[in-house]
């Protein structure tokens, strides 16, 4: 029974990892940008949620209503102010600039909030659970987060393939010059892509902060989980991030079930295994 429970919990955890991954996948798809500060932005969103819940005395889920638009605005400004200048043939500038950004966010958070672990409380929801036959219990909160993650990914999929914004994303991704001839301002479209990516990061950050304790140093670890989910699922495949996230979450929980010290290691090994046998991921869409 422990094993089945571990797998179920792993699947639910995978939803959170898919949220880490979706924003990363989106901006890579649109502008081939890999944001090294992605994990630190997730942590920033968690701290933002914490500040709002304590300042206004509201539930973290209500705080989302503020965190998501604020993160989106940060994304737009960041893209237009800094990151657009780094895009080009050379992969080094965006990589190094977002790496610098990661250092800045980590130490900025350290300065403001100190290194103490923090946590957000979702009240009674946290202990509520649904009993399943065979002594299995599913927490209401993890289940809710998983459902939200699936909904967010379905939403991103819809935006990307069925909205005018998504059409602009795909057009700019295909041929930047020609897209501009259609009257699309590349800088603005990239800004919107980053805004959308960080809106998802906002949800991911608040969920992270409800689920576990967090401190300013955990960003890079979240980046790596998100990255692994993207690669496992296959580059450019939005639904793939959900599958990648679930595989990662289940691997980690199975590893932890064998030996608590192996939790993270098992996730990384699952990733390296996929890389070895299917270098382009399970369901790739981009070359």
């Amino acid at each position: 029974m422990d094993w089945i429970n571990a797998i179920i919990q792993g699947i639910l955890l995978g939803g959170l990892y898919a949220l880490f991954a979706a924003g990363l996948s989106l901006i890579f798809g649109v502008m081939r940008l890999v944001n090294i500060a992605h994990g630190d932005l997730i942590v920033l969103a968690a701290f933002l949620g914490l500040t709002i819940t304590t300042a206004l005395g509201v539930s973290p889920l209500i705080a989302l209503l503020l965190v998501v638009p604020v993160m989106a605005a940060i994304g737009y400004v960041l893209q237009r102010g800094i990151l657009n200048q780094t895009l080009g043939e050379d992969i080094l500038p965006p990589l190094l600039v977002t790496f610098g950004l990661s250092v800045i966010i980590q130490n900025g958070l350290l300065e403001i909030y100190s290194a103490d672990p923090q946590k957000m409380s979702a009240g009674a929801l946290e202990t509520a659970s649904i009993a399943l036959p065979g002594d299995l219990n599913i927490g209401v909160l993890p289940l809710m987060m998983f459902v939200v993650a699936v909904a967010v990914i379905a939403g991103l999929q819809w935006i990307f393939y069925h909205s005018s914004l998504g059409r602009a994303f795909r057009a700019v991704s295909d041929k930047q010059d020609i897209a501009q001839l259609m009257g699309l301002n590349k800088a603005h479209v990239f800004g919107l892509a980053m805004a959308l990516s960080l809106a998802v990061v906002g949800i991911a950050g608040v969920f992270l902060g409800i689920r576990t304790s967090f401190d300013p140093s955990i960003g890079p670890g979240r980046l790596i989980f998100g990255f692994e989910a993207v690669i496992i699922g296959g580059l450019g495949n939005i639904w793939g991030t959900l599958i990648g996230g679930i595989i990662l979450g289940v691997s980690q929980n199975i590893g932890a079930q064998i030996n608590p010290g192996w939790q993270l290691l098992a996730g990384h090994i699952a990733f390296l295994f996929v890389l070895a046998v299917r270098p382009r991921g399970l369901f790739p869409r981009i070359d």
Binding site: S164, R167, A168, R170, A171, S173, D174, K175, D177, I178, A179, L181, M182, G183, L184
Partner: peptide
């Protein structure tokens, strides 16, 4: 443009719509 330069991720209809956006 020279060489057509259509958007490969867009359908025929989407290519036309984006021209009129």
């Amino acid at each position: 443009p020279e060489g057509r330069q259509l958007f490969q991720s867009l359908s025929v209809k989407e290519n036309l719509i984006i021209g009129g956006q």
